[in-house]
Simulated scan of single mutants.
Amino acid sequence: MAGKRTTLTVRLRRLAAMLRELRESAQLSKEDVSARTGINVTTLYRIEMAQARPQRRTLGAMLDLYQVSDKIREEALSLLTDALKPGMSHAYEGAVSDVYATYINFEAEALSARQYQTSTVPGLLQTYEYAAAVIDTTMPRLDAVTMESRAKARMDRSVNLSKDDPLELWVVMDEAAVRRVVGGSAVMAGQLDRLITETKRKNVILQILPFDAGAHPGMAGSFTLLDFRDPADPELVYVESLAIDTLVEGHSEIRRFGVIFDQLRAMALSPRDSAVLLAEARASIAQ
Rank of each mutant, 00 (worst) to 15 (best):
T118D: 15
A213T: 03
A110P: 04
M188A: 01
E109P: 01
M147Y: 04
D233H: 09
S119W: 12
A279C: 02
T199W: 12
M18N: 09
E74W: 07
S274M: 05
E93V: 12
T120M: 15
I260Y: 12
G94M: 02
D82W: 12
D143E: 07
P122T: 05
G3S: 03
V121H: 04
L161G: 01
S284F: 09
A283M: 11
W170G: 08
L84A: 09
N160W: 14
T37H: 03
V276R: 08
E175I: 03
R56C: 06
S119Q: 14
E93N: 12
G60V: 09
D156H: 06
E75N: 07
R150Y: 01
Y128Q: 15
Y116F: 13
T146S: 05
L28C: 05
N203H: 12
D70M: 05
S149L: 12
A286Q: 15
N40I: 03
E21M: 10
K71S: 09
G258N: 13
A215T: 05
D164L: 06
D82C: 02
S284R: 12
G250I: 08
R36Q: 06
A61L: 08
K163M: 14
L28F: 09
F228T: 05
A177K: 00
E280R: 08
D98Q: 12
P122S: 02
F257T: 10
G190E: 09
I104Q: 02
G221C: 00
T197A: 10
E74Q: 09
H90G: 00
V134M: 07
M49K: 15
F106A: 04
G123P: 02
A243D: 13
L247P: 09
T127Q: 05
Y238Q: 03
S158Q: 14
V182G: 00
L167D: 07
L264T: 07
V159N: 05
A52V: 01
V181M: 09
A177H: 02
G3F: 11
I196Y: 07
V96D: 00
R13D: 12
F228Y: 03
T81N: 09
L12M: 14
L12Y: 11
K163E: 14
T7N: 13
V121I: 11
S162V: 15
T43M: 05
K4E: 15
A266L: 08
L192F: 04
S34A: 11
A2K: 03
A279Q: 09
M62E: 14
F223P: 03
M18K: 10
F257E: 08
T246K: 10
